[in-house]
């Protein structure tokens, strides 16, 4: 504990740096996986292709991906951008399947009624399909949050500062408290971001708050979480 008190500033600073790495990656993962997931849902032939690519990308070891990206993207090995891109790739790989499942979870009847009411294709997507896919998307996003925050620490071994720097520094200097602090701080950060996502979900998907709505979307979300958790 004494180590933590005397290094509180540094830990706080690394936490902010870690946030700056993982939050953009999480948001970008969501932004990219929604159209990809919708495509997989809408066009049956693309589903196998997209999900196989996602599974392949997910199988690539993170350290090897961090090293292999710079020649492709032009960013430096130690550039935070390099890490954000790699984390986004993993995030999308995890999230595409959930996004496809999320759009699958919108019942055919609802989509047909929306069309019958005169919704255009894009109007139906933004006004009906996307909101109704929300709860399942949220469950996938929560898995992405936890894995991204944890994975960002790996960047420390190639010299991208994050909470992972506490691991490398603590290991080299033999300070156990520093490593333990890093582990606790990483888990804490993941929990806080997870909570933020849940609260945002309540705000943006108010119908999941009613008892019956909550039960239905929880059941669907639970199923997906388990599936995604198994995959991750």
């Amino acid at each position: 504990m004494t180590w933590l008190w005397s290094n509180l500033d540094e830990v706080g600073e690394l936490m902010l740096v870690h946030l700056a790495l993982s939050v953009p990656a999480v948001i970008l993962s969501l932004v990219f996986s929604i159209p990809l997931g919708w495509t997989a849902h809408r066009y049956a032939w693309s589903r196998g292709v997209l999900l196989s690519i996602a599974a392949l990308l997910y199988a690539i070891p993170s350290l090897a991906l961090f090293v292999s990206l710079p020649p492709l993207t032009g960013f430096g090995l130690r550039s935070p951008m390099n890490l954000v891109i790699a984390l986004t790739i993993y995030g999308v790989a995890v999230m595409v399947r959930t996004a496809a499942d999320a759009f699958d979870s919108v019942s055919r009847e609802v989509r047909q009624s929306a069309t019958a009411l005169g919704y255009s294709a894009s109007g139906r997507f933004w006004g009906v399909e996307l909101p109704l896919a929300g709860p399942v998307l949220l469950s996938g996003l929560r898995v992405v949050i936890v894995s991204t925050v944890s994975l960002a620490t790996v960047g420390a071994v190639i010299g991208v500062p994050s909470l992972g720097s506490l691991f490398t520094d603590g290991f080299q200097r033999g300070i156990q408290a520093e490593i333990v602090t890093g582990i606790v701080a990483t888990i804490l950060l993941a929990l806080v971001l997870d909570l933020v996502a849940v609260l945002l979900g309540r705000l943006l998907l108010p119908w999941t708050r009613t008892p019956s709505g909550r039960r239905a979307s929880q059941e669907r979300a639970m199923e997906t979480t388990e599936r995604v958790a198994g995959a991750a």
Binding site: V146, T153, V154, F167, T168, G174, Q176, I183, A232
Partner: peptide, 23 residues
């Protein structure tokens, strides 16, 4: 089991590795 495997998943790999390395 869900909790244990979910909780273990949140553990940063590098942290566990370096901690065991020190021990």
């Amino acid at each position: 089991a869900v909790m244990v495997s979910g909780g273990l998943r949140a553990l940063p790999t590098l942290g566990v590795l370096t901690l065991f390395g020190l021990w």
